[in-house]
């Protein structure tokens, strides 16, 4: 059974739908899957999640969660849905404990009833349980929000950019928690602008300007990358990128961490035999441009490379 089914969802904002946030999105997520919606700011991630969370109405298209329609069955859907908005939306003037009890109460349950589900997360919050939510750190706020979204044991969990505004350690912990939640059979849909987080999902959809560019497992997405990719660095990175873009064999070049990623125009097929000669050629070209400290490596494409390539291909 598919836990989430989205069919041709369209949503526009502004006068006469001037801004198209979602342009015919279709996807489906299996029960117990951790599915990632990956895309930059403004791709339409939040709009999609808000439609699924029954907060806004789509202009066209259908969406079902656990076979319940997001518009027609919204009342029934709300009790089996957990939603964590991108912005911290709990009561800042209530304590951790009070927030949790309140949300448990409005869902008609108690903290004790589903304590097993939130135990791992809640033990970390316990030392601060009498602190006001507004006085928590970013990571702790996120954990509290997750607890509140889980308190009624939802069947589907929608998380809007849970990693934003959180330090890398807390973010890692957060993703570990999501992995554990999967074991409870909860279907999780998570949106994120961080391409590296895609690797932590079972399947991902790359979203750009309201359209899905690709949808597959992270490995599948990486496997679809069709060009040879090099990681290059030198002492002058900015000039290096400019020069690499002018190199005749270059398809695209962009900064990637402390390296520049260079994609070649030729296909990956049969490239392995020529790899060494191409690298030597590249080295020579850069030396002729007076670069120092040159380093050229073969690079494995990541999801971000795939995303950049597919936005360029379109």
């Amino acid at each position: 059974m598919q836990a989430i089914v989205v069919e041709q969802i369209t949503k526009s904002y502004g006068a006469k739908g001037a801004v198209k946030a979602l342009d015919g999105i279709s996807l489906s997520v299996a029960k117990g899957e951790l599915f990632g919606i990956i895309g930059p700011d403004g791709a339409g991630k939040t709009s999609l999640l808000r439609i699924l969370a029954t907060l806004i109405l789509p202009d066209a298209g259908e969406a079902y969660l656990q076979n319940l329609h997001v518009v027609r069955d919204y009342k029934r859907l709300r009790s089996l849905l957990g939603y964590m908005p991108g912005r911290f939306s709990l009561y800042q003037d209530l304590s951790v404990q009070e927030n949790l009890s309140f949300f448990a109460a409005v869902f008609g349950t108690r903290i004790e009833d589903n304590y097993d589900l939130i135990k791992d997360i809640y033990v970390q919050l316990e030392p601060f349980k009498n602190r006001r939510a507004g006085a928590l750190s970013g990571g702790m706020k996120q954990k509290l929000a997750l607890c509140c979204a889980l308190i009624h044991k939802p069947e589907v969990l929608l998380l809007d950019e849970p990693g934003t505004g959180v330090d890398p350690v807390s973010r890692k912990e957060f993703w570990d928690m999501l992995q554990r939640l999967k074991s409870w059979g909860i279907t999780i849909l998570v949106s994120t602008p961080n391409m590296d987080e895609a690797e932590l999902c079972d399947r991902v959809a790359l979203l750009h300007n309201g359209r899905i560019l690709a949808m597959d497992t992270p490995a599948g997405i990486r496997g679809s990358y069709e060009r040879p990719l090099f990681a290059v660095r030198s002492d002058e990175m900015y000039r290096l990128i400019q020069d690499l873009r002018q190199w005749p064999g270059a398809y695209s070049c962009y900064a990637f961490g402390e390296y520049a990623h260079l994609a070649l125009q030729q296909s990956l097929q049969g490239f392995d035999t020529q790899a060494d000669s191409v690298m030597a050629e590249l080295q020579q070209y850069l030396e002729s441009r007076h670069h120092t400290g040159i380093e050229v490596l073969r690079a494995e494409p990541g999801v971000e490379d795939c995303f950049i390539a597919s936005t360029k291909d379109r």
Binding site: R78, L81, F107
Partner: peptide, 12 residues
């Protein structure tokens, strides 16, 4: 403050 967002997804 956005808290209404969180209330709206509850069965209230």
């Amino acid at each position: 403050l956005g808290t209404i967002e969180q209330l709206n997804v509850t069965p209230i």
